[in-house]
Design a protein around this nucleic acid. Sequence first.
RNA 1: GGGUAGGUACCCAAGUGGCCAACGGGGGCAGACUGUAAAUCUGCUGACUUAUGUCUACAGUGGUUCGAAUCCACUCCUGCCCA
Length: 392
Amino acid sequence: MLSVPDQIEILKRGIVTLHSEKELAEKLARGKPLRIKLGVDPTSPDIHLGHAVGLRKLKQFQDLGHQIVLIIGDFTAMIGDPSGRSTTRPPLTYEEVLANAKTYTEQAFLVLDREKTEVVFNGSWFKEMPFMEVIKLNARVTLQQMLQREDFKNRVNNGTEVRLHEIQYPIMQGWDSVVVRSDVEIGGSDQLFNILVGRDLQKEEGMEPQVCMTLPLLEGLDGVKKMSKSLGNYVGLTDAPKDMFGKLMSIPDELMAKYYLLVLGEVMDAAMHPMEAKKQLAAKCVATYHSEAAARECREDWDTRFSKRDLASAELPSYTLGERRDVLGVVQHAYLTAFQQTISGGDARRLIQGGSIQLNGEKLSDPKAEPAWEAGAVLKLDKKRSVRLTAV
RNA sequence: GGGUAGGUACCCAAGUGGCCAACGGGGGCAGACUGUAAAUCUGCUGACUUAUGUCUACAGUGGUUCGAAUCCACUCCUGCCCA
């Protein structure tokens, strides 16, 4: 095992807060593997790069020989973490949560070492908890403490509802720490309050409080809001290589340095042309979650399609005409067969009239026209998607 | 429990009998411009193979009316004040 200062040096990289470095040093100094907790709520089936920030930190701990405890919040997911939210989360059924949990852990192991990770479901202790215990737990936290939280405070002030189950969330997350006897808990910076509740509860149970470590939140593709599935501004770990590459290319320039740091754990070369820097970011990310080969392919594909604007020689999904020959029908059919996406006639019409639909570079702006479709021709559907006609 | 203000499209929000598929903003999509992005400008943003057309939609159910998001009744839901 590395020396304490060396470990701390690695672990402190890229974090926002650490309560406290002294406590962490003391724990590390004992020379025994620490129990590192990260709780994730399977509210959606996919993990994205935002979640991966925490997982990468865990991996560092894991590589240093510590024990990772990944808590799957099957129970807390049904409440939904109110952190940073301005409205109550829509409830999920338990079946949905379990299904999500399954794919979730699979994806977490794209980053973590499966063999060395302890995975527990918090439903295993909350599901059967007697109401008496719930009351006791609740007695330990005051309403005033809860209302200090920015998100609750804002909601109260704005007259938006705050449901009582939502204020249970921090208590439950804190209790998780007691149950798994964590030495360190990791979370996004919005988790600070919740993690600190865990410290309080541990102290009350006569345990040594966990060290609290928070990480920056990764902004999503829009560059402003936190990356999240519900906002649709995320890059999924299992996104197809080309999607992953394309999405990363669409992030605002200002965000690149942060992505380099949090997604790749690297420092961006500020001297590099932004375009090149972004391509490398995208390629490295694809290489991490897919393969080097895939990364190279994506990059070449990107260069042909966008940098050289040479759709003709790019590799595109092939598309075979259906019954209908008019532009409107073909567009709808192409979306459906090549991308499994149903678009309404209205949407198709809007794309056509907006000039998005192009056949070999020529705009097809009349929905009812029946142009001469030829095998090998390139039909552009929208910014990112084109198809190549096969048989006619 | 009492009083009171409300519930309009993805979100905020206007509209208070016909001119309403519903102003405006945000968001989203597309085009031009680019470096892919940002910024800017433009168009679009309920569904139906554009139709002076039909259907579905202004919390829900019923009603009044030639005609309702708009009026009435009841129901459900939320905020605020009081208990």
